[in-house]
Design a protein around this nucleic acid. Structure first.
Length: 425
RNA sequence: GGUGGGUUGGCAGAGUGGUUGAAUGCACCGGUCUUGAAAACCGGCAUGCGUGAAAGCGUAUCCAGGGUUCGAAUCCCUGACCCACCGCCA
């Protein structure tokens, strides 16, 4: 959500930012609504002030036992005019807010301009894809041959885009998530959270999924929404709160299921575990002071990359261009892991600085020690990592010629002594 | 799901429909006193919005939304949440 006062002050910069994202200039329309709203509000307040004064006078007269009928009659007349002005002001305000709520965040100055993912810029690359002396299989072939990854049975009960992991693969997924959580909590300073997976619409408005992207979400009949990412419950921890400066930075991590309708993705990544309606993800969220959010984005991205480094999975980090960034982000790094089965890098993490965009929507503030007015915090979120896709990466990168999977060293403590995953006996 | 009770400032807690943004206490900030501190005493102490160069002025806010009234923290209706008990339940 944007600050209308800031738009008032620098409308050109606002429109220029929208243009970089491929959106039309809106400041003129916003400022017209804003001016109308304020004029109507002032008029309503003037009428109200007169009525309040009259009501006081009536009270004063009555307490002295005097007659006040003339005033009562006079004041009654202004009632409709006031109600009308108030209603109009509210209508304009609603219109303004409705429009504001659908406007994406403005990209940072250093975000590369571009139309789509082809214009993203690689900022670094880590690791060297292994050379196989056989043709590497993709995770579907590997998992099904192991007899521990079953798309057909999942489809029987749930339809497309679900999977049933069993045995050692189910354990491997659990191991990955536990490993990530341990690193983030024990080494990276994040507090582990086990949050609700069903939330109200206000929470989704706060992080920016609503009102624009309802189609991407699952909605229950009794009006809950399934979270598409733990970013939603973790960031909303700060909603409607004003914390002390000393409480920042606040860092939270959670392993949750994420539920996405994938409404606009029909036909895309239909094979395998890459794009599912339900997947496990370990998420990181930070609330920081405005002057700290640039550094925090770098830090968070390093925390995510650290997981891949310790799993010895090759990856590259890209800076998203203006056209590929999410609604609430001012700057985003995607981390893409190497998948030998697809012979390409695929997104496994996305780390974003939302600045005060979400904080303003959910009213998340902090107060500096010097006692000045509360300010909005800056919020950041990043996957650390997408567990399902990480499982895919482990299978494809650690596969052996016979179809068995070597367990990455970092996961051995989580695998009950098992070093290699083989087909079920 | 049922019945009953509740929701007032940072906290606790008053508040006969009339000049109440709201008593009082605690906390907090400033001052007096003190070698220093404590105590005592004095004063201050909510937020949003509009307007204004500023001081200020106006307006709204006592869970939320409607209503009655010249006037609502106070009366009426609806809803949310909390607490207790009952039922059900991992």
């Amino acid at each position: 959500m944007h600050d209308i006062r800031k738009i008032r002050e620098t409308p050109e910069a606002f429109d220029a930012g929208l243009k970089r994202r491929g959106a039309e200039a809106l400041s003129a329309r916003l400022l017209a609504l804003d001016a109308e709203r304020r004029a109507l509000e002032t008029r309503a307040q003037e009428i109200q002030a007169e009525r309040n004064a009259a009501a006081k006078e009536i009270g004063a007269r009555k307490s002295k036992g005097e007659d006040a009928e003339d005033l009562i009659e006079q004041v009654s007349k202004s009632k409709d005019a006031q109600a009308a002005a108030e209603a109009e002001a509210k209508a304009k305000g609603d219109e303004l807010n409705t429009l504001l709520a659908t406007i994406p965040n403005i990209p940072d100055a250093d975000v590369p301009d571009g139309k789509d993912e082809h214009d993203n810029i690689e900022v670094r690359k880590w690791g060297v894809p292994a050379a196989f002396d056989f043709t590497p299989k993709d995770h579907v072939e590997l998992g099904e041959a192991l007899g521990q990854m079953d798309f057909e049975r999942a489809a029987k009960m749930s339809g497309a885009r679900f999977v049933l992991l069993t045995g050692q693969l189910a354990r491997l997924e659990r191991a990955l998530a536990a490993f990530m959580l341990d690193v983030h909590t024990l080494e990276n300073g994040y507090t582990e959270v086990n949050p609700p997976a069903l939330v109200k619409d206000t929470a989704l408005f706060g992080t920016g999924q609503l009102p624009k992207f309802a189609d991407d979400l699952f909605h229950t009949v009794d009006d809950y929404w399934l979270i598409p990412t733990a970013e939603v419950p973790l960031t909303n921890i700060a909603a409607d709160e004003t914390v002390a400066e000393s409480a920042l930075p606040a860092r939270f991590t959670a392993k949750t299921w994420c539920f996405r309708s994938e409404a606009g993705s029909a036909g895309k990544d239909t094979r395998g575990m890459i794009r599912q309606h339900q997947f496990t993800k370990v998420e990181m969220v930070s609330m920081v002071k405005p002057e700290e959010s640039d550094a925090e984005l770098e830090r968070m991205t390093e925390c995510a990359e650290g997981i891949l480094q310790r799993l010895d999975l090759p990856y590259r980090t890209v800076a998203l261009c203006t056209g590929d960034m999410g609604f609430g982000a001012a700057k985003t790094y995607d981390i893409e892991v190497w998948l030998p089965g697809q012979n390409t890098y695929r997104e496994i993490s996305s780390c974003s600085n939302c600045r005060d965009f979400q904080a303003r929507r959910m009213n998340a503030r902090f107060k500096r020690a010097d006692g000045k007015k509360p300010e909005f915090v800056h919020t950041l979120n990043g996957s650390g990592l997408a567990v399902g896709r990480c499982l895919v990466a482990v299978l494809e990168n650690y596969q052996n010629a016979d179809g068995s999977i070597t367990i990455p060293k970092a996961l051995l403590p989580y695998m009950a002594g098992q070093e290699v995953i083989r087909p079920d006996a």
